[in-house]
């Protein structure tokens, strides 16, 4: 598909460095966790998970995202998608745990919406550097919400892993995780020790070139799974013994350790 020319209809400032852009293009068929390739004309095209049927939630980090922050309502971006494999959807009656770090709350928020709509009980552990950076706290309010901040400005002072260590996961049916890879790997290790990593889904990031499963730039060792197509969501069982938590590759294909 060619990029869909999409007009920005609303911009919400979520935190000093994070904005949600709403578009006049609606991806009704999108599954939570799927992403779109976002083309910022004249700059670059980068992957962003859909944080809603017609929205992306962007943290400003470099060229393309800084350029997005210069755009206003009425400006356009090109959107291709939805691509990739999203999360599995919890069934009624199941117990769900969300674990999100920083902007990692964006891919999980649409799941929280579903859980809330269906009246499923969920527990969320949301972490960020400081209280200003906790995203979507109202969307995650579908049960218990634990907040951790690195600087102690809200909730528990520390990391989501500190909270997770004290959380009983024996009755949880599905765990959903997204955040910086180091955080996700620590979560993976805790859950693996409890043998519940196979009930856990992680949303991964790698450098995407084609974004459609052809070039292999995003493929992970040792199975050659493509994050853009076979993922970005992977079950913990699929990640055992993989490069996850150890290294990724840059745009030239060179390994970079975490």
């Amino acid at each position: 598909m060619r990029p869909i020319h999409s007009k920005i209809t609303e911009i919400v400032e979520e935190s000093p460095n994070v904005r949600t852009f709403f578009f006049d293009t609606q991806f009704d068929e999108a599954i939570p966790g799927q992403f779109v390739m976002v083309w910022v004309h004249g700059t670059d095209e980068v992957p962003m998970t859909l944080s809603g049927k017609n929205s992306i939630t962007v943290q400003k980090v470099g060229d393309a995202t800084s350029r997005m922050f210069e755009l206003g309502i009425g400006d356009h971006m090109g959107l291709r998608g939805p691509f990739g494999r999203g999360f599995t959807i919890p069934r009624n009656g199941e117990n769900v745990l969300f674990i999100a770090g920083g902007v990692g709350a964006a891919p999980i928020a649409p799941l929280a919406d579903i859980v809330k709509m269906r009246g499923i009980e969920a527990h969320a552990i949301l972490g960020a550097r400081c209280c200003d950076e906790i995203l979507f706290r109202e969307r995650f309010a579908c049960g218990r919400v634990d907040i951790t901040t690195d600087d102690g400005s809200e909730g528990r002072s520390g990391f989501v892993t500190d909270q997770l260590t004290e959380t009983d996961t024996s009755n949880i049916n599905r765990i959903y995780v997204c955040g910086p890879e180091i955080m996700m790997y620590k979560v993976f290790e805790i859950l693996k020790a409890r043998n519940v990593h196979v009930k856990t889904e992680f949303s991964l990031h790698r450098y995407f070139k084609c974004g459609i499963g052809v070039c292999g730039a995003c493929s992970m060792d040792p199975e050659g799974l493509r994050v853009c197509r076979d993922g970005p969501v992977f079950n913990g069982g699929e990640l055992e013994g993989s490069e996850f938590g150890h290294y990724e590759r840059d745009s030239s294909g060179r390994k970079c350790r975490f």
């Binding site: 083309w39 700059t43 980068v46 291709r80 070139k209 974004g211 745009s251 030239s252």
Partner: peptide, 12 residues
């Protein structure tokens, strides 16, 4: 080592 061109780099 080469980074390649900016995206979009492949479109159907």
């Amino acid at each position: 080592p080469k980074k390649g061109h900016n995206n979009p780099s492949m479109v159907e």
